[in-house]
Amino acid sequence: MSPATPADTGGESEYVLLASGEDESAPGKKTESRLAHYLYGTSTILLFIAAWYAAAELDMINRTLLPSPGEVLSAFTAMAMSGELAEHVAISMYRIGSGFALGLVTAIPLGLMIARIRLVRAFLEPILELIRPIPALAFLPLAILWFGVGEANKLFIMWFGTFFVIIVSVIEGVYNFDAVYLRVAKNLNANQMQMFVYVLLPGVVPFVLEGMRQAVAVSAEMIAAQAGIGFLILNSALFYQTSRVIVGIIVLGFLGMTLDRLLIFITRNVFLRYKRTDEIAI
């Protein structure tokens, strides 16, 4: 096999374009350094918890404002046992999922059209540029007025948060897409519609996945502001239940990380096929 080529886009997108199983560097050495890598990372987290623990035990901080790790752990256990936590996580996941789905379904076709059809771009780009920098949460009060306090306003905010991130990556994806593929498709008698469906759409998948990773961060933010775990955090803070607040925050962190890892996993394995062939040495 040919060596995996680093992505020319650099940085994060290497995940998209590198084949996981095909790196030829000596496997033994690789696992060893990866293990060390994990150990270093874990030790920093442990050190952080130790410092937190010491600060709490030595009464350096107000226990009400910052409970010790032990208290947080027992709060976590209690919430996990009662099923309360699972419920919040489920609600949050459901909202991330539906917001994402709605964001993808709307952003992908519109992004493709904006990037490819000059007239659509001329009409829509200015308004998108105007709305895009507005944080989704700025719309929260309005969304409540429009959609009430129920599910619809939350879905709107989630959609808003993910839509713009994904549409930008779709447009970028089309711009970065090697136009020669479109020529090849055209030469093979593909019409405009077929080029969209069979060439552009699969062609931008790596970029969409990259956009989705960014959207995960945005979703976590939205979740923190309202639904499920967000509600847990805000509500607990109102009652000075700081242990529960911290549990909520940590769970949110894990949720975000898990989703991110999941997307990286999908990118690496399912879309291994997207590895570009025109850069591969013979």
Partner: peptide
């Protein structure tokens, strides 16, 4: 007139089978 490009430019997301039949599927 069908073209063979300098760098093959096979659609990387399609299998060999799918690549070869591309023109036939389009029509």
């Amino acid at each position: 007139i069908k073209v063979v490009m300098q760098n093959a430019h096979l659609f990387p997301w399609l299998t060999v089978h799918r690549n070869v039949e591309f023109g036939l599927r389009m029509r």
